Amino acid sequence: MTPLLRSLLPLLAGLTLATPALAEDVQVAVAANFTAPMQAIASAFEKDTGHKVVAAYGATGQFYAQIRNGAPFEVFLSADDSTPAKLESEGQAVAGSRFTYAIGTLVLWSAQPGYVDEKGDVLKANQFKHLAIANPKAAPYGLAATQTLDKLGLRDAVAGKIVEGQNITQALQFVSTGNAELGFVALSQVYKDGTITSGSAWQVPTELYEPIRQDALILKKGEHNPAAAALVEYLKGPQAAAIISAYGYQL
């Protein structure tokens, strides 16, 4: 070993130790409907930046309560735009960090091929025993489902058949396991690259429910975490946009 190389070893060792310290973890609360896209985005983000995403998935309303009660989340990806706006107004978020990362689509889905027709007439026929929806008080897709039933004049007719999931993931599970013949879920849960991945579905016309604008923002706990800022910027970039679109969201 040359004297020059020997003299550089301490410096090189210091650089080796310092490099991982530049990468940070970011605690993220993610609306359940965005589970699959977020998992793909997180994987790409970690490869591209070195930061690590630690994500929790659940109902928007429940995350709101947890954030208000001091949960350690640093970034929040909501299933609506009103909850992030409320957190911002309450001083729980970094001002100016809120933006719309996706616009969601509601579908009526069954795990059985051919069960749901292209016009959703299966709802009006009302021959099913159970209809799954997410809790409308906690999950925006559940609220969209009740709005759809109201617009169709079917709310009272199917009221006794509704099984309510805590979030949109649980609503999907009710249908996929056969505990409900059909249910209202997020398009992203049953769609990939231009096609329904299994079963049968009716894409609910957007005029039957209020737009599902999904907003994200940096929470106060992430204000000084570079990984939080990096993730938000990544969500606005072309890599994330391609993944989001592949799951049927509008941008």
Rank of each mutant, 00 (worst) to 15 (best):
Gly222Val: 00
His51Ile: 02
Ala227Asn: 05
Leu143Ser: 06
Ser188Asp: 09
Ala228Trp: 01
Trp202Pro: 03
Gly120Ser: 07
Asn126Gln: 00
Gly120Asn: 02
Lys236Glu: 09
Leu22Tyr: 14
Leu217Asn: 07
Ala144Lys: 10
Ala32Tyr: 02
Ser188Ile: 09
Ala139Phe: 08
Thr206Phe: 06
Ile212Pro: 00
Leu123Lys: 04
Gly50Pro: 12
Pro226Ser: 05
Phe184Asn: 06
Ala157Thr: 10
Leu22Trp: 14
Val107Gln: 06
Thr100Trp: 04
Lys137Pro: 02
Ala40Val: 04
Pro20Gln: 01
Gln66Arg: 15
Leu106Val: 04
Ile244Lys: 09
Lys220Arg: 12
Thr197Gln: 13
Ala139Leu: 14
Ala55Gly: 11
Thr195Phe: 05
Val107Trp: 04
Ile162Tyr: 08
Val54Lys: 15
Pro211Asn: 03
Gln127Tyr: 01
Gly114Val: 06
Ala138Gly: 00
Gly222Tyr: 00
Gln66Asn: 14
Ile168Gly: 01
Ala95Pro: 01
Ala229Ser: 14
Phe99Tyr: 12
Asn167Gln: 03
Gln170Glu: 15
Pro205Tyr: 05
Glu207Trp: 07
Thr146Ile: 09
Ser43Glu: 15
Phe63Glu: 09
Ala171Cys: 08
Pro84Ala: 07
Thr19Trp: 15
Ala246Pro: 04
Phe45Arg: 07
Ala230His: 09
Leu217Met: 11
Gln112Arg: 13
Val122Arg: 08
Lys52Glu: 13
Phe99Asn: 09
His130Met: 13
Val204Lys: 03
Tyr115Ser: 10
Gln203Arg: 11
Lys137Glu: 13
Gly14Met: 13
Ser200Leu: 12
Val204Thr: 04
Glu90Thr: 08
Gln127Leu: 06
Ser198Val: 03
Gly237Phe: 06
Gln112Lys: 15
Gly114Glu: 03
Glu210Asn: 13
Leu11Lys: 02
Gln127Thr: 01
Lys137Cys: 07
His130Arg: 15
Leu143Gly: 10
Val30Glu: 08
Trp109Ser: 09
Trp109Gln: 09
Pro113Trp: 02
Gly183Tyr: 07
Ala180Lys: 05
Ala230Pro: 11
Thr105Asp: 11
Phe76Arg: 08
Lys124Met: 09
Thr60Val: 06
Leu231Val: 05
Pro238Leu: 10
Leu154Tyr: 08
Asn179Glu: 08
Gly120Ala: 04
Ser82Ala: 15
Thr35Ser: 11
Val26Thr: 06
Leu187Lys: 15
Ala125Gly: 06
Trp109Ile: 00
Pro136Phe: 12
Ala227Cys: 07
Asn225Ser: 12
Lys192Trp: 12
Gly120Pro: 00
Ser198Lys: 14
Arg98Glu: 14
Leu22Asp: 01
Ala79Ile: 03
